[in-house]
Nucleic acid binder design. Sequence first.
RNA 1: GGGCGAUUAGCUCAGUUGGCUAGAGCGCCACGUUUACACCGUGGAUGUCGGGGGUUCGAGUCCCUCAUCGCCCACCA
Length: 973
Amino acid sequence: MTTELPKQYEPQAAQQRWYSQWEQDGRFDADPNPDKQPHTIMIPLPNVTGALHMGHALNGTLQDLITRWRRMQGYEALWQPGTDHAGIATQSVVERRMLEEEGLTRHDIGREALVERIWKWKDEYEARILNQLRQMGASCDWRRTRFTLDEVCSAAVRKTFFKLFSEGLIFRGKRLVNWDTFLQTAVANDEVFHETVPGHFWTFTYPVAGSDEKIAFSTTRPETMLGDSAVAVHPDDERYKHLIGTNVVIPLTGREIPIIADGQLVDKELGTGAVKVTPAHDHNDYACGQRHGLELINILNADGTINEAGGPYAGMDRYDARKKCIADMEQLGHLVEIEDREIEIAHSDRSKTPIEPYLSDQWFVAMQDLAQAAIDAVEDGRVRFFPARYSKTYLDWLGEKRDWCISRQLWWGHQIPIWYCDSCTEAELQAAFADRDDVAFRRDAEDTIWLICSETDLAEDALGGDHKLTRDPDVLDTWFSSALWPHETLGWPEKTESLDYFYPGSVLITSRDIITLWVARMVIMGLYNMGDIPFAHVHIHPKILDGFGQTMSKSKGNGVNPMDLIDKYGTDALRFTIASFAGESQDVKLPVGYECPHCGNVIPQTLKHQKAIPAGGDKPRVKCDKCKQESQFSSAWFDPDPGEPVARIVSERFEYGRNFCNKLWNAARFAIMNLEGYTPGEISESELRLEDRWILSRLSRTTRAVNELLSEYKFDAATRTLRDFVWNEFCDWYVEMVKPRLRDEAAQASSQRILVGVLDGIVRLLSPFTPFVTEELWSRLNEIAPERGLFEPQTAADSCMIAPYPDFPADWQNEGLESEFARLQETIVAVRNLRAVYRIANAVELKLHIRCSAEVAAELNDVASQFENLAKAELVAAGPDVDSPPASASFSLTDADGFVPLEGIVDLDAELKRQQAEAEKIRGHIAGHEKKLSNQNFVDRAPPHVVEDVRETLAGLKKQLESVDEIIGQLSG
RNA sequence: GGGCGAUUAGCUCAGUUGGCUAGAGCGCCACGUUUACACCGUGGAUGUCGGGGGUUCGAGUCCCUCAUCGCCCACCA
């Protein structure tokens, strides 16, 4: 009737078939529905810079898991997809490539052409990324896919900027920024990395004006002498106290600057105790300059050359100027010492060139009130972090309330909607924009120019022919638009139905490194624009590290491509394994290896492999330790030569998921093979056997645990719970126990109904974790048993992913029955153990005598056939009067002793030794317990139930020991 | 320098509010093709729970301290 299932689950076919089917059926679509509760997850938008990595795979798996789970629970579940334009990251990737391949810089081709190229890049990579998400089974509502430069997002950005500007929360100011002289842009702190390089530490002197004295100081950047505004000493430093208030002369330029006292900047014990102060080129000096009202002397042009403030050095590159400053100072007799020293130099993460602290005009958002609102939202519990400890990261950062620099000197992004006019009057502006409520203007802080903010683009001649408007060329920080993600994607500032229904979101799932950059800012902007939090929960998941505990990154060459893993192990295996990683406590190490293309052997990856960069001729190779052949391998540093067999990166960790999927597949395969002649029908209580009631009890308990664990984002525990249940309980015990009934005509109908009912529940439980294999099985079950269920048969849903998520009655749970079952299991294991110890072949039938209470005997007799079935042993006697037959091997449980006559097989000496070892072990446990109980403090102070437990356990152990001793007596007698 | 986290079997990790005779997967050993599955089954071995103090009747779990590792923030004239 049905075609037989293959012995192994074949993921690739199922993945292709079902994903397109789901999309075709609109299964991922989420629309406002008054009859359902909304459940909203906004994707942490991937950058359009490259391909998905393991971090995305983890992040995406968890979001999809929660979305699928909630969808099955009956929520209108939206998973909003999209990508981020990622300002600097994308622009610099495109620029770098352009330079490498064509020798062109952005200045060669101009703004428009560069932006056009980046759009092309974006189209290609966005498509690739979204396609990779699909391969991971992501159930995003693709109709809603957004890109942060989409029209709706632009509108939201404009609106927000305008609102902030109008309310005085956006201002323009001079600030020291991290300047990338190569890309000619400010870069954020998080885009800066520090590298230790060998350098020098120069000590110079400045002569004190009108005196013979000199004051010595040290620096690692001599050219900044050109911009010095003061020399600072510690107010308590006896060496220099008398000089405070006098002036020194900078020999290079002849400029006079004061000696000031600053206890914050200066540490008496360090260096000479005197510090040159360059407020325009050093962050600490800047703060010092603010304290003392020092002049800000900017000596650099945007490209890193010295500007006119540098006098004779103007026009030189800063490093050439450095050499000349040193030479000149030496010639003037002011160079004291050169010391070789390792220096940490800030580098731009994008261009990999050294950063210069640089004074420039930037736009800021005033954070005082905005940050406070976001702090309140977490402190009063409207936004909750899982795990809770991460709220500290969030609160600490927001607590600093540092103004947010939102301007970036880039061409790729949302251009700042500000126009300047330096010639017009207020009256002219008012006249021009009288009827415009989307235009606002004011003077800048220094009262030099008009700042005009508009929600729509203004023409150059918007003020008439006399005045020219020029637009600020800068773009906004990427995070400005992504901060709006949770509401802009739903149509804000329009009051759309979707916005009303899906906002605020349910949970944000992301990794900890963007708690400040992104999570905090979404809360801020959500509260500001919507008057409501963007999401109720924030789940922070672990990071996947390489086998050596390092974060995976392109620059380390230790990345792993999830698509390779999908190819090798299947999507479900990847998802299931990844979910098993995602616990609360720590990051996860993922050792990987190279799969030998010749023999399939996996060669462990070493640090050397990660760093192997081809130098000249041949590409690096990896040697297989099994077949001794060499091959090129997947690497971040080179593409293997065409036609070469390639050792790709795999990880045996994913066999965990693959094997599990296969186990599930085969359990279902077994069931389906045994559903011949299945008829749907009600299952009555009276038909239930011990194993049925047991598996239902376990199923109910498992279901409940999984639902609870998922609601707390404990994916690892949920995964383990399911695996244990399916493999160790359902497959290992239940399926084995029903086998005889399925062959027995009288019992067949009901056992088929129960079996398929339980399997149906398992498949639904697993569907959010492993959507493809479950859907495949679901469709097979729909062919052979379209009506099924516990206890009333119902027509199954067309697709597993829209079937209701299980929520079995709690009253199926039965603790007494489970412990009764546990005794049966123990007994069977004990018999199997004897078989193994005495090497008795399965074909040899054993006889089993059990001494136990009449009550236990009755229970065992009820399931006597299972001893035959599972241990190939016949239960010949059970009860209080059972004696050990001669030449028996035996085992002893808490409330039963078992004897297996093994005439001619059992080696009585060996058996004696085995029992003696057993007795020894029990005595050890007994001693431990007795010690506890003999401690009066324990008996008096420990809770009564704990004491009672210990007493009971001890009694059990003693009884067990008695039996063992008796056996020993018989054996040695 | 400040904060957070980690250190448990050869490897990768679980271990809820202290009650543990410390678990899982992989790997290892022995046996096994019993018609769901060798991506399997059955049985087995393996730990001073990083070191040292303390609190407690009782510590893998709480506190202090040291060591090592990771991440975040700040800073390094």
